[in-house]
């Protein structure tokens, strides 16, 4: 009598029944849990609201633009409302403001997150961390009015001339001297840094906190300093979370509208140098809907710009969220 539990491949034994794909036996799979088919489909109806809204947004933008302008001219850089519809300058403007802002927000956010997870005692971070959350809560138009009236003149009279004097040998920093009103890339990047900072900081903090205590203690126990433990253990372990912070922070900065419409001198041209001004897609869309309302071709071009902005934002967002299992912090706008 052969042992039935032993793996046997002899020809006289009947093959074992294949397990069903669901992991249960075929009979259990046929049995319905409860309710009718219709009854089980009902919950999908309210659950599909966000998907329906997304589809409706895309369809409405496609319908209102009829995709008339997509073509070579649309990706060109000549935007001259009744005649030419090339959005390249605005796409470039969006990246030129969002990418440097992301760089600063990641660097500062990494520093703050490391300080609050591994250097400062809990009773201090309890008082300091809410300031970063508060930064997320401030409405963008309040950033805008502060940036336009206080920060931009300060950049125009103090910071930009200083940078121009000392950095003009670098490519992109020379050329035309900065204007004294200060409206332009530096102040835009500064405001966007502040707006992306809470998202990057919170996500990096969550990533570092998700590092198991054992690993921290192993690192410290081997004689590494706190910094070496962060650098060699915690950051590699939380690298996906940190990468997702970069994507989601970029998404926030890329779609920012009102603050950019206020602190940039929105024009359809590439910036002359680092102190020049340009337009972002969101700001241009926000500012020119009023003047476009009775010109169907203009409206079509703006809707297509909205589609491009939406596509890039959603792609970045999707990648950022795929990188981490679940976002712990829910109470931040845009996260």
């Amino acid at each position: 009598m052969p042992d039935p539990s032993a793996p046997v491949a002899s020809a006289d034994r009947e093959p074992l029944p294949r397990p069903s794909p669901s992991g249960r036996s075929p009979r259990a799979r046929r049995r319905r849990p409860y309710g009718s088919v219709v009854g089980r489909l009902v919950p999908y109806l309210p659950a599909a609201v966000p998907a329906a809204l997304l589809v409706a947004i895309v369809l409405e933008l496609v319908r209102s633009s009829q995709l008339t302008n997509f073509g070579w001219g649309f990706w060109g850089s000549r935007w001259d409302p009744p005649d030419a519809w090339g959005i390249a300058t605005f796409v470039a403007g969006s990246f030129l403001t969002a990418l440097p802002a992301l760089f600063f927000a990641m660097a500062i956010g990494l520093g703050i997150a490391i300080a609050s997870t591994s250097y400062l005692p809990a009773w201090i971070t309890r008082w300091l961390d809410p300031f970063v959350d508060l930064l997320a809560g401030i409405p963008s138009i309040v950033y805008g009015i502060w940036g336009y009236l206080l920060v931009a003149p300060y950049f125009g009279t103090v910071i930009n001339p200083f940078l121009y004097r000392h950095l003009s040998f670098l490519p992109g920093f020379g050329g035309l001297p900065p204007l004294s009103d200060g409206l332009g890339l530096p102040v835009g990047i500064f405001i966007l840094t502040l707006m992306a900072l809470p998202i990057t900081t919170l996500l990096i903090r969550d990533a570092l906190r998700s590092v198991p205590r054992d690993l921290w203690e192993a690192g410290l126990g081997l004689g590494a300093t706190r910094w070496e433990t962060v650098r060699r253990v915690a950051i590699p372990y939380g690298s996906r979370g940190i990468l997702s912070a970069a994507f989601l922070g970029f998404g926030r900065a890329f779609g920012e509208t009102v603050a950019m419409a206020m602190v940039l001198n929105v024009v359809a041209s590439y910036p002359a140098n680092a102190f020049g001004s340009t337009g972002t897609m969101a700001a241009e869309m926000f500012l020119s809907l009023d003047s476009a309302y009775n010109n169907s071709q203009w409206l079509a071009a703006l809707s297509e710009m909205a589609l491009v902005l939406l596509a890039i934002s959603l792609a970045v967002n999707l990648i950022g969220r795929r990188l981490i299992a679940q976002i712990v912090t829910y109470d931040v706008p845009g996260l």
Binding site: I57, G255, A306, L309, L310, N317, L335
Partner: peptide, 10 residues
């Protein structure tokens, strides 16, 4: 989540 990530101007 995608809807949250949609820029408000869109």
């Amino acid at each position: 989540n995608m809807l949250v990530g949609t820029p408000s101007v869109v």
